[in-house]
Write a protein that binds this DNA or RNA. Structure first.
Length: 431
RNA sequence: GUGGGCGUAGUGUAGCGGUUAACACGUCAGGUUGUGGCCCUGAAGAUCGAGGGUUCGAUUCCCUCCGUCCACCCCA
């Protein structure tokens, strides 16, 4: 009666299969080590939050909030949203747990799934994972530089090269208004020449005209007013100090260079002053590997005391794509210690017992499939990438021994007494 | 949300308006007496993405949907 349904993963989401896990783990480990090297501590926030957190935090007019959120009402009628980005939740947690009582700045990192209802394509998924860092409670440009340095170190540790760093300062909210007005006036003079996508943006988000991909608009952007010319004295000072600090990084990172780009703006409302983006110099569209900036207004917007913050997010999937494109990561699954080859009911029972004892010695042991021929089990051991085959048949049971055969290197098969300590001693423990 | 390419066994591919849809890898089983990797033999595995249409007949042509990839949008 019921139609048979073949389920597939929903659009834009993916399984991370066992063969993918080695790369994933290598990248995550690199991320964690890098963050720790800068004194950042891990934080995990819930996968869903109250919808209002993102409406207020990310900004109600942003594309993320307008059309990309997975929002739903729970059974109690509460509107919840699958986390589309990591900064607002971390700031919520900072406020909720009174982290202003900790030594400032509070340095936090996370590796977590993010959800955005978006049309999938290479490097863009409805569920993707971000490695992110947030430094909250310090307005000094040294922290801006630190956040960018984490990116450099991360990219370097992954063996990636040809990654371009662009930075800009979009100023403070006080100066942004007059900047936006001037920007709007600049483009408005040529409004009739603008493509309609950009004409729409003119009112709504003039900043976005700056990074428009439309050639007609780009031509106008070249001599558009620059946010850097509108900085308050304080923001100007912050910006200049940041550049000095970044120049200072060149001794530790000889290949590091950056470019200030007055067309760099970001799509989340909470940013002020410093914004930056890392992208590979190779062609492609979904290229932003690492991006972020300063968000001094955010904690206040979310109801906390005015507290400065700066951070970044970096997409794990995109990083993996890039390491594969550059073949910069050489990851291989290490061999397993041993596969237990056992023929005969008594041998199987004894082999299972021995395997359990060997695991007490820290050895990883895989049972070959029971009831199959010895040849089949040996083939299994080979495919399992095992260092040793431990062979137990009726002959071994009678003599109280086990045959131990090295599979990964040349060497003779040894007959050892059927004793876990003896065998464990012969096989090097996993660590 | 817009535009374009693609959709054949687990994976990667071939194929053609017409009888049993091919190949490689992988899987499973063998290659005599209990031992892997190479090699050899055999087997299983595909309603040719789904639905509809054109046709005597479609996996092959057309439409819709779904998925995927690319570009836009946006962003990580």
């Amino acid at each position: 009666m019921a139609e048979q349904q073949n389920y597939r993963a929903p659009r834009g989401v993916a399984d991370i299969l066992p063969d993918d896990q080695t790369v994933w783990n290598a990248v995550k480990k690199t991320a964690i080590n890098t963050a720790r090297q800068f004194g950042y501590q891990q934080i995990d926030t819930p996968v869903f939050e109250n919808t209002g957190l993102f409406r207020r935090g990310v900004g109600n007019e942003t594309d993320i909030v307008q059309k990309e959120m997975y929002s739903f009402d729970d059974l109690g009628g509460e509107s919840l949203t699958l986390r589309p980005e990591g900064t607002a939740p971390v700031c919520r947690s900072y406020i909720e747990h009174g982290m202003h009582n900790l030594p400032q700045p509070v340095r936090l990192y996370y590796i977590a799934p993010m959800f955005r209802y978006d049309r999938p394509q290479a490097g863009r998924y409805r569920q993707h994972h971000q490695f992110g860092c947030e430094a909250i409670g310090d307005s000094s440009p040294t922290i801006d530089a630190e956040i960018i340095e984490i990116g450099l170190r991360y990219i370097t540790a992954l063996g990636l090269s040809d990654v371009a760093v662009r930075i800009n300062s979009i100023g403070d909210s006080e100066t942004r208004t007059s900047y936006n007005d001037d920007l709007r006036n600049h483009y408005a003079k040529y409004a009739n020449d603008l493509p309609k996508v950009d004409r729409d943006r003119l009112e709504r988000a003039p900043l976005r005209l700056l990074d428009s991909k439309e050639p007609a608009t780009q031509k106008l952007s070249a001599d558009a007013p620059k946010s850097l010319d509108y900085l308050s004295d304080e923001a100007q000072n912050h910006w200049e100090n940041l550049l000095v600090l970044l120049d200072g990084l060149k001794t530790a990172y000889p290949n590091f260079s950056y470019r200030t780009d007055h067309t760099l703006v970001r799509g989340l409302d909470y940013y002020n002053r410093t914004v930056f983006e890392f992208e590979p110099s190779t062609e492609g569209s979904q290229t932003s590997l690492f991006g972020g900036g300063r968000y001094d207004p955010l904690i206040g917007i979310l109801g906390g005391n005015e507290t400065p913050g700066v951070g970044f997010g970096s997409g794990i999937e995109r990083i993996i794509l890039e390491t594969q494109r550059q073949e910069s990561l050489d990851v291989a699954e290490p061999p397993r210690n041993a596969v237990m080859v056992h023929v005969g009911d008594n041998a199987t029972i004894r082999a299972a017992q021995l395997a359990a004892e060997l695991r007490n010695h820290g050895i990883s042991v895989l049972m070959a499939p029971a009831g199959k021929s010895m040849r089949a089990q040996m083939r299994y051991a080979n495919r399992a990438n095992a260092s040793y085959a431990i062979i137990i048949g009726n002959r071994e049971i009678e003599q109280g021994v086990a045959a131990v055969k090295p599979l990964q290197f040349d060497g003779d098969q040894k007959t050892l007494s059927l004793n876990s300590a003896t065998i464990a001693n012969f096989i090097a423990p996993s660590e």
